[in-house]
Design a protein around this nucleic acid. Structure first.
Lengths: 214, 214
DNA sequence: GAAATACTTGACCATATGGTCAACAATTAT
DNA sequence: ATAATTGTTGACCATATGGTCAAGTATTTC
């Protein structure tokens, strides 16, 4: 028996799956799980509804597939930082990365937000445990910076939450921001916002902003 | 003709309406508009479904009624601040207020967030215009603080967005926060988080934290 | 080339859900 | 008291939507 398609899927299959996932990401981000119609996803992908169900057995299956793709985005350089690293450098870099995601993949961010607001009913125990573990590691690093007097803040948790909050906000609330500013934020605006945020967080923690992030 | 009930509604009416609104607020916050079933709202309010429809003709009507109640919460003392006021005082107070809302009315905050993420399809033009107007006024004040050297930040818009982001976050992402911390935030935790945030924002803007907020 | 596998698609079904209706009960106005 | 108004509720309906099925076509495997 020669080498055969392991997952029993041809070229057309993987391509269509990708098309559908992209369409689904848009729809779920805009309408939430319940608010999304399979038909709409199909329309956006320019395929008949039955075809969508062929690749992803159920609506839930489709949603979980989208979610899985998204979770990869939550990795970053901060993952491997230690207490010996320079907090200003690490945090500035981390904020840049998060803002980049907010700019390039706002749908992912929105879906994640919707999921969390609803109490994260679809995030697997594995993901949650992994997240807690990651979090605990990061908190320890931040705490060590606090203890060694490098960083000035009352609480490592809240410090991290506030960073997340700001970065997420630019993706989740893009509609509001566009409306209030009068136009959508472009790449230049995002760079400005990123600089502004880096300054706020670092200065807020008693740190100086590294040259390259000014 | 004697003074008669103007809006043709007796005691039972207003009371039930209130019950239903409270129930609906919970449900909409947890499940979004599409995800909410009128039956669920009715169950929570311990009334038959038909009764809910009697007071609020349609699901949309119910939702809009909930939304209207919520928008009142977005007023604050910051509304009347001027460039002559002390930015440290005003901002610390503003953050305290917003965090208080996040603690006492997280559902309202979530519904608002859901609405915005979906592109605010149900916020009336009036509300939007009013919001822009309010915003413009606040931006002007912040800008004047920047110009007079009292406040240090690159951009008045982003500075304000970041404050909103953080305050909102504690309501919208309460599930995530509870999970990561290991337990829900109580009043004491919220006070700590508020202090932490005030320090971050004020120091981030080159301001000292007023004694009473330390 | 033929068997197996992967993909396509219209017709159809079961169910959930927003909403109506009509008949009745309670309350209020005069 | 009685008429008008307001509130209560079960039965019912129309429709939307997730999902199945079967009958086919295209592609790969040997």
């Amino acid at each position: 028996m020669r080498q055969q398609n392991i997952n029993k899927q041809g070229r057309v299959g993987t391509q269509n799956k990708q098309l559908i996932l992209a369409a689904a990401e848009q729809e779920f981000a805009q309408n939430g799980y319940k608010g999304t119609r399979i038909q709409q996803v199909a329309d956006r992908a320019k395929l008949p509804k039955t075809n969508v169900l062929y690749y992803f057995k159920t609506k839930e299956g489709l949603y979980l597939a989208v979610l899985e793709e998204i979770l990869g985005l939550w990795n970053s350089a901060f993952d491997h930082a230690t207490e010996d690293d320079d907090p200003a450098e690490v945090l500035a870099h981390y904020i840049s990365e998060k803002m980049e995601v907010s700019y390039t993949k706002p749908e992912a961010s929105k879906i994640f937000a919707l999921e969390i607001i609803n109490g994260a009913p679809n995030l697997t125990g594995f993901f949650k445990e992994q997240h807690i573990k990651w979090m605990q590691g990061r908190i320890d690093v931040i705490q060590s910076w606090i203890d060694s007097g490098k960083l000035s803040t009352n609480n490592a948790y809240y410090f991290l939450f506030n960073i997340w909050a700001c970065c997420q906000h630019y993706a989740d609330f893009s509609a509001q921001i566009s409306h209030l500013r009068g136009s959508a934020m472009d790449r230049t605006d995002f760079n400005d916002a990123t600089k502004s945020l880096i300054k706020l967080i670092l200065n807020g923690g008693g740190l100086d902003v590294p040259k390259q992030y000014r």
